[in-house]
Amino acid sequence: MEEFSFANQLFQYLITGLTVGSVYAMVAIGFNIIYNVTEIINLAQGEFVMLGGLIMVFLHAVAGLPLILAFPITVILVTLVGMLLDRLAIRPIRQPSVLTLIIATIAASIIIKGTAMFIWGKDPFDLPAFSGRTPINFLGAVIQPQYFWVIGFLIVTVILLTLFFEKTIIGKAMSACADNPDAASLMGINVKWMILLSFSLSAAIGAVAGITVTPISLMEYDRGAMLAIKGFGAVVLGGLGSFPGAILGGLILGTIESFGAGLISSGYKDAFALIVLLAVLFFRPSGLLGSVEISKIKRF
C-alpha cells in the first residue's frame, strides 16, 4: 500500500477530474452553440445528457442492440428531441425576448424531466462500460478504461466542431447568424433553419456526453439540472460564447471538484467549484477567455 504514493494519488484525482470535466465541457459547448446563434441560454441542455444516458441504457442494456448501433440511434433520437424543443418551445413564441425564450427552455426541461421519470422511474441505471471495467494501471494511477472514452469523445467532438465551423459554408453561415441575423438572411441564409441546426448539434453533443459518462456515474431522470448548472458554470468560467473557454472551463471545474473531493471532503465538491467560479467572476467578469475579441473571433 505504501507504493501507492501521494503523487500517484494526485494523478488519479487529475484523471478523474478531467473525465468529469470533459462532460461539463461538452455541456458547455452545447450551451455555446445555441447561445452563439440565438443568444439564448438553453437551460434544457442538461436534459439532453440525461436522455442520452437513459435512451442508451434502454437500447443497449435492455433491448440488447449492439453498442455500435445503439450509440448512433441514441444520438439521433436525442437530436430529434433537440429539434422538437426548437419547433415546439422556441419558434412558436411570437414576440420573442431572450428572457421569454430562456424561460421556455426551463419549462421544456421540466417537461422532459417529467416524461423521463414517467418512462424510467426514479432509479439510477447502469450501462456496461464500452471496453470492460478492468482498471488500467496508467502512470501509477488505477483508471477505468471508460475514462479514456469520455476524454476521447470530447477530443473527437472538438475536432469535428472545429472542422465544421472553420471549413464548411454551413458552419460559416451559423457564425454569420450569430454575428448579424438580418445580414445573414440577405445572403440567402435561412436563419430559422440555422437555429434548428444549433439545437440539433447541441442535443447531439449532449447525447454523446450522456452516453459516455453513464457507465461511470450511472444516470437517472433528474440528473439534468445539476449537469446544466455545472456546464453553465464552465461556460461562465471560460467566457460566454467561447468554445476554447468552454473546454478550459469544463476541465478546470471538473479538476477542482475532483481535488476538492479527494483532498478535503467529497461532501463539499459542488461548493469548491462554485467558490472558484465566484472568484473568477469577481476578478475577471468576462470569464477566462471571455474578452469580446477572443470569445467571438476565435471560435475554437
Binding site: K172, S175, A176, A178, D179, N180, D182, A183, A184, L186, K296, I297
Partner: peptide
C-alpha cells in the same frame, strides 16, 4: 445601411 458585414469573420 451601415455595411452590416460579418465583423467576426
Amino acid at each position: 445601411e451601415g455595411r452590416q458585414i460579418f465583423g467576426h469573420l
